[in-house]
Design a protein around this nucleic acid. Structure first.
Length: 514
DNA sequence: ATTAGGG
DNA sequence: CCCTAAT
């Protein structure tokens, strides 16, 4: 299925390392071949071979010369598509599910050049699912940005997002100096603004399949990428397979007029025709959703097994062979949460029930519609992409049905924090410090994508309660069997709590209370 | 919009 | 996890 190599320029592109999920990139069966500059010469192939690449029109100029030259190599070619092939049903397990991305040899082979920016340090944002900044001068994944301007060796349990590399995003070599990226220098979050250039020329690749095919133009979204046929999502350092969105009878997608607006392209059933018209008429068949695409934890937050996105390649890559992992796993009740791709709830986190027992919250029981909702927001909205995973979200189901009231009356929900979530929170605190919950959210950790900043705060408080307990008591609680909190983690929490730097006073006070 | 804190 | 007050 999807392979790390799906990210051109990604460290393991080409599947050189079988251990990392590489290997032959694709079963060639392309019907559609479309270039996406954003993916540096990546092809999307579906069935039917014989798409001879041909030179592409000039690529949008990049302000990054090295990249420009790199991109100049890009070739690709719209195929002469066979007419009106009945679209394979990707629900049929016998059908190949995914389009595969082929990386032409030598694509973007040019090494990333050091930033010429006079203000060191410079950073490059890979836009890969998180705001972790990787120093890309020499080593593509040399470090993680900590604090204000400190670049450290990655030390998250050896978690190096090994899939990322400087040229993973060919057009995205946006060099930033700290001064311009974070003028106040108070935040470690140096998001680079998604730019058209970064994704310049990215076409929304539409794969003619039913029921829904997705393509991410990767615009403005962090870490989201789906390729035809329910393909994948980048998550931390991994690229995770995903199931296709389960959307039905949605309104006619609103045209997207800007790249920022159109994080994802969706073509309902237009199939090949639409695909063929793409270059000129793409916008008419594309729905814009908010750029943040996120596949959130299932309702119970049962994430016992998934790799921590941040935990780097090897772990994450298990997902390639083992099917969907990290995002959107089903819980016992078959409820998943994800962002609704189109229509009224585009961009909203929703409960998603695979078999589509709709309208009932899917047993998810996480209705949060009472909470703030982007006011006046109707459908896909242009404008600033919201940071993903912020705040509370509407439920697809709730908005769509009269079950709303019932749901609204529901009392306190219970969504146990998984160990992975908890670990991630701790990481966040390590980076941003306690009390910086919004900042932590902005880090984009996928693991806690479904937790609001307030959730983080609450959880941290609860963690402190335990961590600051006398050792005896902790052990009495079997090191908290219920929450599966390893002593080691609790120790980290404790340290952070006592670190006046990382912990405002909340923690200190907490310790008093205990 | 964020955060702290009570419940 | 929910709610509110205070920024």
């Amino acid at each position: 299925m999807l392979r790390p190599g799906g990210w051109p320029g990604a460290a393991h592109a080409g599947g050189a390392d079988p251990d990392l999920g590489g290997g032959p990139l694709l079963e060639e069966q392309g019907v559609l071949s479309k270039r996406s500059a954003a993916f540096e010469g990546a092809f999307l192939l579906s069935s039917a071979a014989g798409c001879a690449p041909e030179a592409l029109p000039p690529i949008q100029p990049s302000n990054s010369e090295n990249l420009t030259s790199c991109m100049a190599d890009l070739v690709l070619a719209p195929c002469d598509l066979p007419a009106a092939q009945p679209a394979p049903d990707h629900r049929d397990a016998s059908q190949p599910k995914l389009e595969l991305i082929h990386i032409p040899d030598g694509a973007c082979a040019a090494p990333m050049q050091p930033c010429t920016d006079p203000h060191p340090p410079t950073f490059i944002d890979f836009e890969m699912g998180a705001a972790n900044m990787f120093y890309a001068d020499q080593d593509p994944h040399a470090g993680v940005l900590f604090g204000e301007d400190e670049l450290r060796e990655p030390d998250f349990d050896g978690a190096v997002p090994s899939l990322l590399s400087a040229d993973a995003w060919p057009g995205s070599a946006r060099c930033h100096d700290l001064a311009s990226s974070a003028p106040d220098r108070t935040s470690p979050l140096l998001f680079s603004k998604p730019s058209e250039q970064a994704f310049g020329g990215a076409e929304r690749v539409i794969v003619p399949r039913e029921p829904l095919e997705w393509v991410s133009s990767e615009i403005g979204g962090r870490g989201m990428a789906m390729y035809g046929g329910s393909v994948g999502v980048t998550s931390g350092g991994g690229l995770f397979p995903l199931e296709g969105p389960n959307v039905e009878n949605d309104e006619e997608p609103a045209p997207s007029s800007s790249l920022e607006e159109a994080a994802f392209a969706w073509v309902p059933s237009a199939g090949l025709d639409a695909a063929r018209r793409l270059p000129s008429e793409s916008t008419s068949s594309i729905v814009a959703v908010e750029s943040e695409m996120q596949f959130l934890d299932d309702c119970d937050g049962m994430m016992e097994e998934g790799g921590e996105g941040f935990e780097g390649g090897a772990k994450a890559e298990e997902g390639f062979s083992n099917g969907p992992i990290s995002p959107g796993r089903a819980n016992g009740r078959g409820c998943r949460r994800r962002v609704h791709p189109v229509g009224k709830f585009a961009g909203e986190e929703v409960c998603w029930t695979p078999d589509d027992t709709e309208g009932s919250d899917g047993g998810c029981g996480r209705e949060r519609a009472r909470r703030s909702r982007a006011p006046g927001r109707a459908g896909a909205r242009p404008g600033r992409p919201r940071p993903r995973g912020f705040g509370r979200r509407n439920s697809w189901a709730s908005g769509a049905s009269g079950a709303l009231e019932a749901i609204n009356k529901r009392r306190k929900q219970h969504n146990p924090w998984s160990l992975e979530e908890t670990k991630t929170l701790v990481k966040g605190v390590e980076i941003c410090g306690g009390g910086k919950w919004a900042d932590i959210k902005r880090l984009g950790f996928q693991e806690i994508g479904s937790r609001s900043p307030v959730d983080l705060k609450d959880k941290w408080r609860n963690l402190l309660r335990v961590a600051l307990l006398p050792l005896e008591q902790i052990k009495l609680k079997k090191v908290d069997n219920r929450h599966n909190l390893p002593m080691e983690l609790l120790n980290r929490v404790k340290e952070l709590a006592q670190d006046k730097d990382k912990s405002p006073r909340t923690a200190q006070m907490q310790s008093g209370k205990l």
